[in-house]
Design a protein around this nucleic acid. Structure first.
Lengths: 116, 116
DNA sequence: CAAATATACATAATTTTCTTATGTATAAGT
DNA sequence: ACTTATACATAAGAAAATTATGTATATTTG
């Protein structure tokens, strides 16, 4: 028997995954997919879990948009795909971060109008 | 000829609409749909526009979930549907607001780890 | 040493939640 | 008269997740 005690992966509002990926790559120069999932888990103390079904398609799309470059490596006989920001990716990171800040401000105006 | 000068309705991250609706009803006791769209526009100084295609289905769903009660009124020969929180709706409002606060904290941990 | 867990990628089916487009109807402004 | 505002509604489509699988190698553990 198994009693589920986990908090059903507290909400990742749809639309913020790209921002997270770009920001992490902005800080860490180059990362591979699995590393990103672990980093997010670590930084949020387990609050947020990036699922593979969301992450890998997102990485592929960002690459297709020219925001990321890929470099394949073999470590311990296992494949790794290192992603890093292109020039446009760096610009887009700034945009996304501003968008996020704007969103947070907007939501606070709605949810906490006294502080606005 | 028409040159579009609008900022393509600055991002509403998917998942936050219910929070907004519940919070507004928590503050204003009872509101009707159109009123909600106007209130959001006002509070966010035009930054956020709730589309009808999103709002009405959301209201219907919240009602179906037992979080809202409806009361139909006729004002100036026009229909209005006033929504108000049920008891469960009030509880869920608190949950959603906590969820939002959590999300903002989480995103700040990711995007601004120096402050964490 | 067999089994389970961790590392590392990937994709398909489905669900959720929007946007866009359309429709109906009345009231008020120009 | 025509446009804009008020007030509801729904359908089609898009976007972005979740969930469920699948493959493969390495490491830990009982």
């Amino acid at each position: 028997m198994y009693i589920c005690a986990t908090m059903s992966n507290s909400k990742l509002y749809k639309g913020s995954l790209n921002t997270i990926i770009l920001k992490l790559l902005n800080e860490n120069d180059k990362m591979y997919g699995y590393e990103i999932t672990q980093k997010v888990k670590e930084l949020t103390k387990g609050e947020l879990k990036i699922t593979e079904g969301a992450l890998y398609p997102a990485l592929h799309k960002l690459e297709a948009q020219g925001l990321l470059d890929v470099e394949v490596a073999k470590v311990d006989n296992r494949l790794r795909k290192y992603y890093k920001l292109t020039e446009n990716g760096t610009k887009e990171t700034a945009n996304k971060l501003e968008e996020l800040a704007e969103y947070i401000k907007t939501m606070q105006a709605l949810v906490n109008p006294k502080l606005a």
